[in-house]
Amino acid sequence: MTFPSLGLLSQSVLSGLFLGGMYGLIGLGLGLSWGLLGQINLTHFGFVFLSAYLCYHLTMVWGVDPLLTLGLLVPAFFAVGVVMQWALARFRVSTFNSLLVTFGLTVMIEALIQKIWTADFRKLQTGYGEEKFSFLGLYAPLPELLTLTVSAAAAGGIWLLMRYTDLGKAMRAMAEDAPIAAAFGVNARALALLLSGSCVALAAIAGVFFALSFTLTPTQIFSWVGVVFAAVMMGGLGNPLGPLLAGLVIGVSEALAMAVFSPSWAPIVSFSLLIVLLLFRPAHR
């Protein structure tokens, strides 16, 4: 163990923040559907990757600007989320079973991606990837900067919605006592469809920014599950700011662990953090 220079440390913290932004963006929809709908939606990761591959395809084959693909992917994935919630409600899938069902769906999405785009590494080549800013000797690539900004804006925006609008209050009320919320006129079924659609749309957004920053390969889907789950659980289920804040903490600790010790330390650090937090945090709700 050699202690790194201040410059290297600051660069590590910065890239940790960027990585944390990605954790937060992926975790946002996952945590909302878990906390408010009682569904542990593993398909969320499949949707993120499917969206990333579709963004890659639209950009590389059809020449669409990657950010413009959001205009197509967000509404399409919203519709998928609505259909999925309709089916889960129709067959009364419990929280635990939702974990199994959505795991199965994720494996199917992985196979589909493998079939269409093969297991080869794919990297989106765009002008965005070349752009980078540097200040105070630190270096910030545009895609990562965009990811962090969008992640913060989405989490903040949804937090405001949940806190200050009647729709948000109705969703929180529904999460706590759906029958009583319904007795005051909340149409729980419609809200669940809206919420599920929004969560899958958030997966689509995460996918586009994922494609901008990361090299794609289908088997990677499952390597993101652990750390994003950790971020969601640390941040508190159903709290829109939680996954981002926890994601940033995890991202920075991982980056520091990599700089100070070695890259293989990163997962040990994030899961130790999760375990310590779960042990010592007062029970939520």
């Binding site: 009647d166 929180r172 009320a173 706590e176 006592d177 009583i180 007795a183 005051f184 006129g185 909340v186």
Partner: peptide, 26 residues
Amino acid sequence: VAIVPESRRLFSAMTVRENLELGSYL
């Protein structure tokens, strides 16, 4: 119709104001 249910069943994680506001959701 509006109900005051047995054992109250407030939205306990929400504030008093939010509970009251939810009563006037429609």
